[in-house]
Design a protein around this nucleic acid. Structure first.
Length: 881
DNA sequence: CTAGGGTTAG
């Protein structure tokens, strides 16, 4: 009876489904066969194959206990390991050892696999030690399992060692090694092992091919991938789905769309990986329409999973296709798709991108497990849709709910405070960042540097910069830009030098920060060096770099270099032309500026409001009144550009400079917007030059009434009253400036002599070679006096008792010191180039003209407004400045 | 009686 039943059960066990298996199991129990190691072992195996490891476990527990038969132990360990219960499998291995059962060579592969599944390196090493100790180290199957384990753990060297020590290897050994390399991104190594394999006696199989294809997909230069495609056919694995999926993936990664499409079309059997590979592949190539099309044409052919859905939804985000997003969302819900955290986060982002914040909020509310990304996505959604208040509200909620903010949260919020120039908010965030330890994140610190700078707190920027342990290119760019923004060029230069010495690789932004700094400083030498640097880094053909170079060279006094850069540019936009036109303007080359403007129009470049400022400015500095006015008209009527305050100021300047004072005044009266201090100041300067003190006084009164923020305008008015000797008014203005705690921008000049910049302040006696400078100036004054020069003290603003004292102050204007220093320290005849942060005063202008004749030198002076080239007693500005 | 390896994704 028992013998008949055993035979029957043995046969019945050959191919059962789960229902049949349970019946057989019941039969085994009723026949009292459950203590038979043979039947128990069979049942454990069968349950395991049907992915029911818990039933396997209960069979094991009811079997003879403690089991002595290693076969039973092997079965249960295998059942657990194969079904992903790695920890349990390892526990059973330990129990086996405790019961003093001797493992055999069949015990180890599942145990090793369990270690691999847990990526537990220590346990892996321990098990491998046991294997070697018990003498199973040379077994092929055990060895393969170990190679695979180390491969999966990314310990590729260790895997290779074990591989090399194996006395026998087969294709599985090779495949384990190759797939390990591929999986861990060591594509060259994967291909290397593949080549070794090809030159051995072992024949590759479909597993080999699939593993190595994924490596070829990531190696653009290597053409062997194509060979593999042919080889696939030769091996006879051309119809294996997984192999074709590998080919598809490779071709898509290499952007070989036609090949991918051909493989796809010729596939007889496809699986969901096939469709996902196509959908994700198109998505990664930013071919969102194709990705979506692939899904819509085949969504009934396979079961969409998280990969499908995340690609398609993100494609909807890029395409701003709200309808499709909602459709896919619905399709997911209908199909019983569980919206987990990741997919929920994608949905929030997609709805936000498509502008449906209500839908985004609904998804957010409905999510059971929110993570930081969920909060970031919804906050970012509100920021992008312009609802900063709601975004901040959510951030507060996040803090209250003790939800962890990450570096991206802070990055987003800091950029909001930057955009709003909200220093209070920014500083609050800075505190949070410091408290939560994110100040070690470079990008967050960079954002804080930028925020402080744009809120006008250069000091904060520098402090953050100095406290940073690691800095990247953006950090340096930001801090230099902070210095430039606040006018602290000295620190800007220092940081630039540090950056160049630090070995950080500059990017385009670096040059776009440093070049304007060189322009402001007229640091010709540094500018040229930077030009060389950017050639070395290959940025010379960039449009914005070209534009910056034009500006840098023109402001450094090298108009010719500007022109050279301009001529070499392959593409030119409005900014390029504006740069050239402005450059010509600064040098008093109004005709050339007009020609450039016409050229620009001929080249089909549409002018914007800025280029009109440049051209009117150019006309203004060359006395081309009619032409300038014509440009102004053209802007309004032909190009329909509404003039701004700056345009009106330019026109007033244009008229005033040419002494058409009444016309200028008339023009101001017809302005459709209320003229500000800059407009009146232009007129006032003209009155001062022409000596029209009646209008000057009237205009000064207007300026004072406007109470301008810029102290320069008030000082101009004050100087007018000083010239009229109305000292009460002067002291009144001075007092109001003092009350507002505004200090006059101190004037200074600088000159570059033998590669060093020397700075001079008005009346500065501590300057280098001060005595020699004063002595040589005295000599020059006496020579000038012989030519009939009388110092003009109108520019002096203080009510000083002694006329002599006034003269001393005039003599002390910083540009004269710089010029004298230049004369003393260069060979006779060398041209001088002096920079000044304010405008040159009338008396200094006169003096410089005379000096240029007396010493026979060209003196180029760049003031806040333009260039003056002094030569043989005349100036290129033709006294219009 | 029993064992080992592959493709999509960030």
């Amino acid at each position: 009876m028992v013998i008949v039943s055993s035979a029957f059960i043995s046969k019945a066990l050959s191919s059962p489904n789960l229902k049949d298996l349970r019946q057989i199991h019941a039969l085994v129990i009723t026949l009292n066969l459950e203590h038979s190691d043979f039947f128990s072992g069979k049942l454990i195996d069968k349950y395991s194959n049907l992915k029911d490891p818990h039933s396997s476990l209960s069979v094991f527990k009811r079997a003879s206990s403690p089991p002595k038969n290693v076969y039973l132990w092997n079965s249960i360990i295998r059942a657990l390991s194969h079904n992903g219960l790695s920890t349990k499998a390892l526990d059973f291995y330990k129990k086996l050892r405790e019961h003093n059962v001797s493992p055999d060579k069949y015990t180890f592969p599942p145990v090793v696999k369990a270690c691999a599944g847990l990526l537990d390196k220590e346990m892996g090493d321990w098990v491998y030690g046991e294997i070697v100790e018990l003498g199973f180290g040379s077994d092929l199957y055990v060895g393969n399992a170990v190679v695979d384990m180390y491969s999966r753990m990314g310990l590729l060297g260790r895997a290779r060692e074990v591989f090399d020590e194996m006395p026998v290897r087969d294709i599985v050994s090779w495949n384990s090694l190759i797939s390990g390399c591929s999986y861990h991104g060591c594509y060259e190594e994967a291909v290397g092992v593949y080549r070794e394999l090809r030159s051995s006696w072992v024949v590759p199989d479909s597993f080999t091919v699939t593993s190595v294809l994924s490596a070829f997909g990531n190696l653009e230069g290597v053409k062997e991938g194509e060979g593999v495609h042919g080889f696939v056919v030769k091996l006879g694995v051309g119809s294996v789905v997984v192999v074709n999926n590998g080919l598809l993936s490779m071709y898509l990664k290499l952007r070989r769309l036609r090949d991918a499409r051909r493989v796809f079309d010729e596939m007889v059997v496809r699986d969901s990986v096939t469709y996902n590979t196509m959908i994700c592949g198109y998505f990664n190539l930013e071919m969102y329409e194709e990705s979506v099309k692939m899904f819509l044409e085949n969504f009934d052919q396979f079961k969409a999973d998280i990969l499908t859905v995340s690609s398609i939804l993100r494609a909807c985000g890029h395409l701003r296709d709200l309808r499709l997003a909602k459709y896919v969302h619905e399709y997911m819900m209908r199909g019983g798709f569980v919206v987990g955290t990741t997919v929920g986060n994608i949905l929030i982002d997609v709805y936000a991108k498509c502008g449906d914040m209500i839908a985004a909020r609904d998804v957010f509310k409905g999510m059971e497990c929110k993570d930081t990304v969920s909060w970031n996505s919804i906050i970012n959604g509100y920021i992008q849709s312009g609802d900063v208040l709601e975004a901040m509200q959510l951030f507060k909620m996040m803090m209250i709910m003790d939800e962890r903010a990450d570096h991206i949260t802070y990055l987003m919020l800091v950029s909001v405070s930057t955009r709003l120039t909200d220093l209070k908010l920014g500083r609050g965030l800075h505190c949070n960042v410091t408290k939560s330890g994110f100040c070690s994140d470079v990008s967050v610190s960079n954002a804080l540097i930028d925020m402080s700078a744009k809120c006008g707190e250069e000091g904060d920027s520098l402090q953050i910069f100095n406290s940073m342990e690691s800095k990247d290119t953006v950090t340096w760019n930001m801090v230099i830009s902070a210095c430039v923004r606040s006018g602290d060029f000295a620190t800007g230069l220092q940081v630039t030098t540090q950056m160049r010495n630090s070995g950080v690789v500059p990017d385009m932004a670096t040059f776009l920060v440093i070049l304007p700094m060189c322009a402001s400083l007229a640091a010709k030498r540094l500018g040229k060096e930077i030009h060389c640097c950017l050639l070395r880094f290959g940025y010379e053909s960039e449009l914005r770099i070209g534009n910056a170079l034009i500006e840098m060279y023109s402001k450094c006094g090298c108009l010719k270099s500007s022109l050279k850069v301009f001529e070499h540019m392959s593409r030119r936009d409005v900014v390029t032309w504006t740069g050239m036109i402005y450059a010509y303007g600064m040098y008093g080359e109004g005709e050339k500026a007009l020609a450039a403007f016409a050229d620009m129009e001929k080249n089909g470049v549409v002018p914007d409001n800025v280029v009109f400022i440049a051209i009117i400015y150019a006309c203004s500095h060359s006395g081309l009144v009619e032409e300038g006015l014509a440009c102004f008209e053209k802007m309004k009527t032909q190009y329909m550009i509404e003039p701004t305050m700056e345009h009106y100021a330019c026109v007033v300047d244009l008229l005033s400079r040419s002494q058409k004072i009444s016309k200028a005044e008339e023009f101001i009266q017809t302005m459709p917007i209320k003229p500000d201090a800059s407009i009146w100041a232009s007129l006032l300067r003209a009155c001062r030059t022409s000596g029209d003190m009646e209008i000057a006084e009237r205009v000064s009164k207007k300026i004072i009434e406007l109470n301008p923020d810029d102290p320069g305008y008030s000082i101009l008015a004050s100087n007018t009253y000083a010239a009229l000797r109305k000292w009460d008014k002067v002291s009144l203005i001075r007092k109001s400036l003092k009350d507002k705690q505004i200090k006059k921008n101190p004037g200074f000049s600088w000159i570059e002599v033998s590669n060093r910049v020397h700075v001079f302040r008005a009346g500065d006696v501590s300057a280098p070679q001060s005595e020699a400078i004063h002595k040589s100036l005295e000599i020059l004054y006496s020579l000038m006096a012989k030519e009939g020069y009388i110092p003009d003290s109108r520019e002096v603003s203080q009510n000083l008792e002694e006329e002599e004292e006034k003269r001393r102050l005039v003599c002390g204007h910083s540009e004269r010191l710089a010029i004298a220093f230049g004369l003393l320290n260069t060979e006779p005849g060398t041209p001088l180039q002096v920079m000044k942060n304010l405008r040159v005063c009338g008396d200094c202008h006169e003096v410089t003209k005379l000096i240029s004749r007396i010493v026979g030198r060209e003196i180029l002076v760049r003031d806040a407004n333009r260039f003056h080239l002094f030569k043989d007693g005349t100036c290129s500005c033709k006294d219009r400045w």
